[in-house]
């Protein structure tokens, strides 16, 4: 594997992470002004994690380093970029102004995967595809496993939680369409069905490690895409890192299969065709 090929998954991961972080750019460009106008003093958070400059630095530095990585891809910039995303995600996960955005949970796990990949591909690239794909599978599975268990409560079984969050007022096309075509009672019933289906999909995604890697990552991509299209386009900021991880895992698996079944050389191809 050439250096360029080795770094290709990290370039894609960087692109996915930058896209995820900037997907809600309107919010992130407006939030600093709000935080500066009305700073909130809360003894729960340590002082640096209430500081606006820390928030802005943790958000901007990884994005800037990722752009350098796109322009001049090298092992050094790849490592720096993944370490920056990892540190930035961790800080943003704990900061008063961003702790509630799950974008930084998924990007933390994706960047940890990136750091692992850079380490593993330098030391021993054998069976890299198997390891990379399975790690991607269990990261996606973990996030949905917790999501599924956290929903095993009456509010999700009867659909009342998702009814109030999405069905009542959310302007997303799917909910607006349902509101326009169903009676109040039918809408409430649709919320119950929808809520149970979401829990079912999450339980399915939690079983990903039990499935063959290629199929698991393909199914995960479809399920994650459906969640975004049907629920909320803003979710792409949370799901984007995971979708990129699935794509990169699939690419590495395909490469691994290519390496274990090398194409026949020209004389072999002639012999096979005759």
């Amino acid at each position: 594997m050439t250096e360029r090929e080795r770094l290709q998954p990290i370039r894609w991961l960087c692109a996915g992470l930058v896209a995820s972080w900037t997907w809600k750019w309107r919010f992130f460009t407006g939030a600093p002004a709000v935080y500066a106008h009305t700073p909130l003093h809360d003894p729960f958070f340590p002082e640096p994690l209430q500081n606006l400059s820390v928030l802005v630095t943790a958000f901007c530095v990884p994005i800037l380093i990722a752009f350098v990585m796109f322009v001049r891809p090298s092992a050094l910039f790849a490592r720096t970029s993944m370490a920056a995303f990892c540190t930035g995600s961790l800080v943003l996960n704990l900061h008063q102004g961003s702790y509630n955005d799950a974008t930084f949970v998924t990007s933390l796990w994706a960047s940890l995967w990136g750091l692992w990949y850079l380490h593993a591909s330098t030391r021993d690239a054998t069976e890299l595809g198997v390891r990379a794909a399975f790690l991607a599978q269990i990261i996606v599975a973990l996030l949905f496993f917790g999501g599924a268990l956290g929903k095993l409560t009456p509010g999700y079984f009867d659909g009342s939680v998702l009814y109030r969050i999405y069905f009542e007022k959310r302007q997303h096309w799917s909910f607006a369409w349902l509101r326009g075509h169903l009676t109040a009672a039918e809408l409430r019933y649709a919320a119950t069905l929808y809520s149970r289906t979401v829990v079912g999909i999450e339980i399915f995604l939690a079983t990903l490690p039990l499935w063959p890697s290629r199929l698991a990552l393909q199914l995960a991509l479809v399920a994650l895409g459906m969640l975004v299209v049907l629920n909320n386009f803003q979710l792409l900021s949370v799901i984007g890192s995971l979708m990129t991880l699935c794509v990169v895992g699939l690419w590495l698996l395909r490469r691994a299969m290519g390496d274990s079944n090398p194409r026949p050389t020209a004389p072999e191809a002639v012999a096979l065709s005759s």
Partner: peptide
């Protein structure tokens, strides 16, 4: 509810899968 006894204990579980948990 940000009422965990210590910030460290709260922070420890922040990378966990808490999205869309509970009512």
């Amino acid at each position: 509810h940000l009422r965990t006894q210590s910030f460290a204990a709260w922070a420890l579980f922040q990378p966990g899968p808490w999205m869309y948990n509970f009512d």
